[in-house]
Computed example of a mutant assay.
Amino acid sequence: MSSNERRQRVERVAGSRRAKLTPAPGTRPEPVPRDDTNAVGAEASVNTSGPNDERMLRDVPPHY
């Protein structure tokens, strides 16, 4: 398999100003709802918070 077969490709869409990418290798093209606990990778995204998340949610930019 060459390197071009493993990469996303840009496809032109007739009548559109924007192009679209083909799905990345190893991914599914359709979105997965956040509530879907059976989805691959869903267990990693549930209740993940970093050490600064609480402070970042409280902070307000000075122009507000």
Rank of each mutant, 00 (worst) to 15 (best):
M1P: 05
M1F: 15
M1K: 11
S2L: 02
S2T: 15
S3M: 11
S3G: 10
S3H: 13
S3K: 10
N4F: 14
N4A: 15
N4W: 15
E5Q: 11
E5A: 13
E5Y: 05
R7C: 03
Q8K: 08
Q8A: 06
R9Q: 03
R9S: 03
R9C: 02
V10D: 01
V10W: 04
V10N: 07
V10S: 05
E11K: 11
E11C: 10
R12Q: 13
R12G: 08
V13C: 10
V13D: 02
A14S: 14
A14L: 03
G15R: 10
S16A: 15
S16W: 12
S16L: 02
R17P: 06
R17N: 15
R17E: 12
R18L: 13
R18G: 12
R18M: 13
A19H: 06
K20P: 04
L21S: 02
L21D: 03
L21K: 00
L21I: 00
L21R: 02
L21V: 02
T22V: 02
P23K: 06
P23V: 01
A24L: 06
A24Y: 09
P25N: 07
P25V: 08
G26Q: 02
T27A: 00
T27H: 01
T27Q: 01
R28C: 09
R28S: 14
P29R: 04
P29M: 00
P29L: 01
P29Q: 03
P29G: 07
E30T: 15
P31E: 03
V32K: 08
V32M: 04
V32P: 05
P33R: 05
P33E: 00
R34G: 08
R34P: 11
D35W: 07
D36W: 04
D36S: 06
D36R: 01
T37I: 09
T37N: 11
T37A: 10
N38R: 14
A39C: 06
A39K: 03
G41W: 05
G41P: 03
G41T: 08
G41Y: 06
G41E: 00
G41M: 02
G41A: 05
G41Q: 00
A42Y: 01
A42P: 00
A42T: 09
A42G: 01
E43Q: 12
E43S: 15
A44S: 08
A44F: 08
A44W: 08
S45Q: 14
S45I: 12
S45T: 14
S45G: 02
V46C: 10
V46H: 13
N47I: 00
N47A: 08
T48N: 13
S49E: 13
G50P: 07
G50K: 09
G50W: 00
G50D: 09
P51D: 01
P51K: 00
D53N: 11
D53V: 10
E54K: 13
R55S: 11
R55D: 12
M56T: 13
M56H: 15
M56Y: 14
L57G: 13
R58F: 01
R58Y: 03
R58C: 07
R58G: 03
R58V: 08
V60C: 06
V60Y: 05
V60N: 08
P61C: 07
P61G: 06
P61R: 05
P61N: 11
P62A: 05
H63L: 12
H63W: 15
H63Y: 14
H63N: 14
H63T: 15
Y64L: 10
